[in-house]
Design a binder for these strands. Structure first.
Length: 593
RNA sequence: GCGCCUGUAGCUCAGCUGGAUAGAGCAACGGACUUCUAAUCCGUAGGUCGCAGGUUCGAAUCCUGCCAGGCGUACCA
């Protein structure tokens, strides 16, 4: 019996009791959790039934509770004000829930009846002119977590990375290298490829301040690129390859992976045919530009949703310039269609910062106007800014936290801590490297995922590298402790056992099992709302419940062998839950820290 | 101007499909290591849930208005 079935069974019994008491089956039956574990394991608030039965919730609770018989599952039902508190027999609560978790392992949250949908999660989508920064890490952590969560829920997920590898900004670093690069390369300079290219991007910005003429040079270069000038294309390819190589190293370090890459260089012209079709179908209109130079193709946004312009006209958005050149919107329309047809998508999730909410609202509106069946499945998963103590990150001003630097810094901190704890038996270099990667990554990802996506993050370097409190390493540590106990138990010939679960039931054990019971429903919420933060918080609370238990009670050295075995079952399930949860948000666990 | 987002403890945030005394972490102070890893645990202190109305038996949660900050506001991405 898993926690879902347990709740189902309790609800049924309450329903029967209500029917027996009042003659009709109750409205708004619900199951919540009492504030303290001493009050019971589940509770049912009787407010919704008040109208139906024409009695006070308190009275209803009292009468229904009396009609809930004690049995194998429900040990006791007791009214407490407007609530019916349910105490489940400890044998069932601990035995059934834990053995089910252990049996199902990482699938213990996966619903049996999951509508399998084809979902694309597009995330990261970097420019190839500079290295990744902290904002990308937030995006990456979110994207991976959401993809994992959807996969665990039974969906078919395609992780996509749309690489912005063309445009003026790309030409800037190309121009700078061409002028001042002296044929150096990442290899010759011993610099990671993306950082090397980023260096030339910065160089361009510096030089352009002194020499405004560079601006036209860059424009010329872009035109040559678009014309397919072999020299420029060759330069572009070479420098992009350097960046890709650098990126893939960072992806690997941060545990990001993708099933498909889309390159803007392949897709930037894609939307144009659709624009033409949209004109034919009168979805789009041609409108004279403000400067009278020519006619842009625009889309009029639905007034009900977007309101009117100051002049009283519907708001509009340009989808193609008068000179026929593409815009961000042009290619996004094309790419959306390409994605949907390539992968036969039901849903398409864009993990992109909240500064682009308007853009995506417009894009989705356009797709709907074309009546694509999948248009309703498009969703912009937006997230807030990452602020540094000094203010918003601005790459132009150099106020950024470089992704590679941050990862390295935190890994080094982890290494210090690991070494401190293993002074007597120093680890091999390989083992140290392995552990610091997992802990470092866990720290950063958890820090970025623990708050709601919409919430801006005020990045505090000090706090982010801390391993205390509400952090990834705290959760990893709880898991490592559990692993340690299980290892020791095995050496002593003790194994987790179902049979003696009725021996459990102190406050700490009840607190811990409650978190395990709630795990699947917290998972479900994070699936439905696409909120990994919800899961992160629950993982932390579970880890805390374990630590509280651990500090107060012995497992291996419990009073009796039977109690030890029962507790082993409990913590084994807790370990499974912690590992599963952490993996879902992209964080690995360690058997030893 | 308009739209969206945010406003909860000194700081960073949970809780927001209304329901039992508003929770965590950090920082501060005081305790707990001969004991399964102290990257832990316990305790103390800290809150007019931005403000004002409204709906309701009941509001941090829903509605309206206001205030503050952020982001955006066709022909950048």
């Amino acid at each position: 019996m898993d926690s879902g079935q347990l709740k189902e069974s309790i609800l049924t019994q309450i329903e029967h009791a209500a029917e027996k008491t009042f003659g009709t089956s109750p409205d708004g039956l619900n199951l919540v959790y009492p504030p303290g574990v001493d009050m019971g394991d589940f509770a049912c608030g009787c407010f919704p039934m008040a109208k139906q039965y024409r009695r006070s919730p308190n009275d209803i609770a009292l009468k229904i509770a009396k009609n809930i018989p004690s049995g194998e599952i429900i040990q006791k039902a007791e009214a407490s004000g407007p609530y019916i508190n349910i105490k489940v027999s400890n044998a069932v609560l601990f035995g059934e829930i834990c053995s089910e978790i252990i049996k199902k392992q990482e699938k213990f949250c996966t619903p049996n009846t999951s509508p399998k949908k084809r979902v694309m999660v597009e995330y990261l989508s970097p420019n190839t002119n500079k290295p990744l920064h902290l904002g990308h890490l937030r995006n990456g952590a979110l994207g991976m977590a959401v993809a994992n969560i959807l996969m665990a829920a039974g969906h078919h997920v395609v992780k996509a990375n749309l690489i912005n590898n063309r445009g003026v900004h790309i030409c800037k670093s190309m121009l700078a290298w061409q002028r001042w690069g002296n044929d150096t390369s990442p290899k010759s300079e011993g610099i990671k490829g993306d950082h090397f290219v980023g260096k030339w991007y910065v160089k361009y910005a510096q030089e352009a301040e002194k020499d405004p003429g560079l601006e036209t040079e860059v424009q010329k270069m872009l035109q040559r690129w678009e014309a397919g000038d072999p020299e420029i294309v060759k330069l572009w390819k070479m420098m992009n390859d350097w960046v890709y190589e650098g990126f893939s190293e960072t992806y690997k370090k941060f545990g990001l992976n993708f099933d498909v890459f889309y390159y803007e260089s392949d897709t930037y012209k894609l939307g144009k045919d659709i624009i033409a079709k949209g004109l034919e179908k009168q979805i789009f209109q041609k409108i004279l530009r403000d400067n009278g130079a020519g006619e842009n193709v625009v889309f009029h946004l639905p007034v009900e949703k977007f309101g009117l312009e100051k002049n009283g006209n519907p708001k509009k958005i340009t989808v193609l310039r008068d000179d026929g050149t593409s815009l961000y919107m042009t290619q996004d329309i094309g790419t959306a269609i390409l994605k949907a047809t390539d992968h036969n998508l039901d849903r398409s999730i864009y993990v992109v910062g909240s500064e682009q909410v308007h853009h995506f609202q417009c894009l989705f509106e356009i797709l709907k106007a074309f009546e694509y069946p999948w248009a309703d499945g498009c969703y912009h998963l937006s997230y807030g800014m990452v602020y540094l103590p000094e203010g918003k990150m601005k790459s132009r001003e150099g106020k950024i936290v470089d992704a590679d630097d941050l990862i390295e810094e935190i890994e080094n901190l982890a290494a210090q801590e690991i070494c401190r704890r293993n002074e007597e038996n120093p680890l091999s270099e390989q083992e140290l490297k392995y552990r610091k990667q997992i802990i470092g990554q866990g720290a950063i990802k958890f820090y970025l995922l623990r708050v709601r996506a919409m919430q801006d993050i005020h990045f505090d370097p000090q706090e982010s590298i801390s391993f205390d409190g509400f952090t990834g390493p705290y959760c990893q540590y709880a898991y490592a402790r559990i692993s340690g106990i299980l290892r020791n138990a095995e050496n002593l010939g003790l194994t987790a056992a179902y049979g003696d679960s009725n021996l459990l039931g102190n406050d700490e054990e009840l607190q811990l099992i409650r978190h395990l019971v709630r795990f699947p429903e917290e998972f479900e919420i994070s699936v439905n709302d696409l909120t990994p933060s919800r899961l992160a918080v629950h993982i932390f609370n579970t880890a805390k419940a374990f630590n509280q238990f651990y500090n107060k009670h012995q497992v291996i050295h419990a009073d009796t062998k039977e109690l030890a075995k029962a507790r082993l079952l409990l913590i084994k399930a807790a370990g499974t839950a912690l590992k599963t949860g952490l993996n879902l948000i992209g964080i690995d666990v360690l058997e030893r820290m």
